[in-house]
Write a protein that binds this DNA or RNA. Structure first.
Length: 553
RNA sequence: UGGGUUAUGGUGUAACGGUAGCACUACAGAUUUUGAUUCUGUCAGUCUAGGUUCGAAACCUGGUAACCCAACCA
């Protein structure tokens, strides 16, 4: 109540309805079709629908819109439920449009009896031809004036299975000259002799979307039926059916689907990426699917925060990917365990450190003291990041360079004395001296350095496969570019490397989130086995220096 | 003279006839044993032309632009 946060237009409507006493509590629903995996676009709808009944009295149903048996499968039902729960929401009732098939059938009978529906024997081509175009009115079907009794008989026989697929349809009788194409005698039932994932072979006629969705809403007494903008023209039909059927008046409200830059967000396109093997399945960490993002290491809280931040409105939009990254980092920064890993190693030798000696040094586990500490082994030879050394240091370079000093995180201050190159001119080894009095936590050296770098002790280091991801597409809006969206796929969206990790990372589990110090946030991938660690880079840290050098170049 | 929807910084979103605000991005600086985090600051906006009004991003009129609608998909 004390929130100053401004309301979106749907919350405005809900508040007005509640204030006017139109409803004492509200009912919303999330209505996926079980024919694919949920993606970031669905997350917006989930957060909206479930969020509304968290903020206002009422509840939200999960209703599968399963009126097309040829594309729908139980496998999808399960993944959808898992994704919603993972996002942190729980539905009141788990329902299916197919639960209402008998009721829907009776609704159709009622329409026929009122003279508002008829059986059409036209082929799909004939129906399309008579439909007209947006600028030309349609023409009445020759079957439009069948008598009620004949329609009833035919429709009953359609249900009994007397006719083949495509031979008959049931259409609402509205107006073939209507400016809204959807009002030109829309099809409401079609024959499909197909096995349904829930009703099996009980039916061979199935209602169309427009004769299932709104009626299901009404049956469930949904007060606010929220969908995306492309359904705006359907609202007229939605209201027409409810009025003619004289059933509970649910209302439909539409918002603009959210688009994310550098990716695509339609089931059809995502399916192509999977089928054509541009990615490795629906849960590939580069996919904007909920399952892909979960595998990548996104947290539910970060996705909810993102949905909340981008808001709900009616205009076309492409949200910056960087905002999603911001929400992710914001959450991960607070929750990820800290660890050290070297992704691109170069050998560093501390020439004045006793050979064979190993010290266990204390370092922090997390962003604050509550996470406690652990120890990491330290010895004479370490891996450090190749990019942390510069033979000829740039301006404002804080890291290692000939003669320069840095602190090794949670360890000692070192000074670079020499470096060794191979024939190819690549630095192979960096030699340093350390200052024993500069030990972390008990530094009496009086030295101060600008830079601190991470490291991993070579003898104890463990290896892991690390998968580095970049954006899937090279352009902000692949769908609006010339040609095929697949032409704009980023060929370097996945880079697989072998990294050296501190030994504690051997205990990583799939739920844990890590910040590899100075490198980014990582999590264990499901491909990891007892013998082989595999990490995904969820997102990099912000890197002011990298930005700096990029600009200078 | 088909119908519908939408136009606010680079991006997303507020302002409900009364000071155009917030967040991201970008940039500059402070702190920092992560060039992270944190903190401070800067740049930057009402599609257009008229009108109503003391006062318009908002209301009216005319343009312009983008998106949606001609699946037995949802």
């Amino acid at each position: 109540m004390s929130e100053e946060r401004s309301l979106n237009f749907i919350e405005d409507i809900v508040e007005a309805d509640l204030a006017a006493g139109k409803y004492k509590s509200i009912v919303t629903r999330f209505p996926p079709e079980p024919n694919g995996y949920l993606h970031m676009g669905h997350a917006t709808s989930i957060c909206l629908n479930f969020g509304l009944t968290k903020d206002y009295p009422g509840y939200t149903n999960l209703r599968f819109d399963d009126t097309n048996p040829v594309t729908e499968e139980t496998e999808y039902v399960d993944s959808i439920k898992e994704d919603i729960r993972w996002l942190g929401f729980e539905w009141k009732h788990e329902l299916y449009a197919s639960d209402y098939f008998e009721e829907l059938y009776q609704f159709a009978i009622k329409l026929i009896q009122k003279g508002l529906a008829y059986v059409d024997d036209s082929s799909s081509e004939e129906i399309a031809k008579l439909k007209g175009t947006p600028t030309e009115p349609g023409t009445n079907s020759p079957f439009r004036h069948r008598r009620v009794e004949e329609n009833l008989d035919l429709f009953t026989r359609m249900r009994k299975g007397e006719f083949a697929d495509g031979t008959h349809t049931l259409r609402a009788k509205i107006d073939m000259a209507h400016p809204n194409m959807l009002m030109r005698d829309p099809l409401i039932y079609r024959i499909k002799h197909a096995h349904h994932h829930r009703t099996g072979d009980a039916w061979c006629i199935y209602p169309m979307y427009d004769f299932a969705h709104g009626q299901s809403d009404s049956i469930e007494h949904i007060t606010h039926s929220i969908c995306t903008l492309e359904f705006v023209p359907h609202r007229e039909l939605y209201d027409w059916f409810i009025e003619q059927l004289e059933i509970f008046p649910s209302h439909q409200y539409e918002f603009a689907r959210r688009n994310l830059s550098y990716t695509v967000m339609s089931k059809r396109k995502l399916l192509q990426l999977v089928n054509d093997q541009y990615v490795n399945g629906w849960d590939d960490p580069r996919m904007p699917t909920i399952s892909g993002m979960r595998r990548r290491g996104f947290t539910p809280a970060s996705i909810r925060k993102f949905c909340d931040t981008i808001g709900i409105a009616k205009r076309e939009n492409v949200v910056d990917f960087s905002l999603l990254e911001f929400c992710l980092r914001e959450d991960l920064n607070l929750t990820a365990l800290r660890a050290m890993a070297v992704l691109d190693p170069v050998r560093l030798v501390i020439t004045n450190y006793e050979e064979g000696k190993v010290e266990e040094l204390t370092t922090e586990n997390g962003p604050d003291a509550a996470y406690g500490t652990r120890t990491v082994p330290f010895n004479r030879e370490l891996w450090i990041e190749r990019e942390d050394f510069m033979e000829e240091p740039a301006k404002k370079w804080f890291r290692l360079a000939p003669g320069a000093m840095v602190r090794l995180k949670s360890a000692y201050i070192i000074r670079c004395d020499h470096f060794i190159k191979n024939e190819a001119g690549t630095v192979e080894e960096i030699q340093c001296t350390y200052f024993p009095e500069s030990r972390s936590g008990q530094d009496s050296s009086g030295l101060s350095v600008k830079g601190t770098i991470h490291w991993v002790s070579i003898p104890q280091a463990i290896q892991a496969e690390v998968r580095l991801y970049d954006r899937l597409f090279k352009v902000e809006n692949p769908s609006s570019e010339e040609g095929d969206f697949k032409d704009y796929i980023n060929p370097d969206s996945l880079q697989v490397i072998t990294a050296f990790l501190e030994p504690s990372l051997a205990d990583a589990t799939i739920e844990k989130r890590f910040q590899f110090l100075r490198k980014g946030y990582f999590c264990l991938d499901k491909d990891a086995t007892t013998g082989k660690l595999v990490f995904n880079r969820t997102v990099t840290l912000k890197d002011a220096w990298a930005k700096n050098t990029k600009q200078g170049a």
